[in-house]
């Protein structure tokens, strides 16, 4: 399988690092080489935050994603910053509730998912990240569905175990939206 070099970016608090953790754990379960690198510091408390995930079949060199082939963005500054860095043919997943502009480049594939609105409508405020993740899984196949379920069990803290179904429902909604 081709390497997936993924950047997930938006505001702190949108669950960007969590989304990356789900992907990383799924990669671990599949026995792949991987790295997960968060931005850290003040941006985790409300500023622009991001998370780099690399899934590969060969040992990962730099954990810093220079040219993503998968970009997930949840605010406009992140789209402005990362759109030029995406490799030609890369895929950009946009939360179109929060980002009103479209992708300017014509050599990438863009998917617009009103994830924040969908999550609110489903009664799962704050799970727009999982809706976007569902879209990414459907369009990239970067990890298998089965391993994502197992990864969710690892990543959701025990005291919030009741949220598994909500996370799962949002992933399914995201998949359905782009298929």
């Amino acid at each position: 399988m081709a390497d997936h070099e993924i950047v997930i970016a938006g505001f702190g608090g949108q669950g960007l690092l969590f989304t990356g953790k789900v992907l990383a754990h799924a990669g671990l379960i599949e026995g792949r080489e991987l790295s997960w690198l968060p931005s850290y510091g003040p941006e985790m408390r409300g500023g622009t935050a991001n998370c780099n995930v690399i899934l590969s079949d060969t040992p990962v060199g730099s954990p810093i994603v220079q040219h993503p082939n998968v970009l997930i963005v949840m605010n406009t500054p992140s789209l402005d910053k990362y759109e030029p860095m995406v490799v030609p043919g890369g895929k950009i997943f946009v939360d179109s509730t929060l980002i009103t502009r479209t992708v300017e480049r014509d050599d990438v594939e863009a998917f617009y998912i009103p994830a924040t609105q969908m999550a609110t409508d489903m009664g799962y405020h704050g799970l727009a990240n999982m809706i976007l993740l569902g879209a990414v899984l459907a369009k990239t196949g970067c990890v298998d569905d089965g391993t994502v379920d197992e990864a969710l069990h690892h990543v959701i803290p025990a005291r919030k175990a009741n949220l598994f179904d909500a996370n799962k429902a949002c992933i399914e909604a995201g998949k359905a939206y782009v298929c």
Binding site: S35, W36, L37, P38, P63
Partner: peptide
């Protein structure tokens, strides 16, 4: 360094 401290790997 900060990268090594913050990153996750298997």
């Amino acid at each position: 360094d900060g990268t090594m401290g913050q990153m996750m790997e298997p």
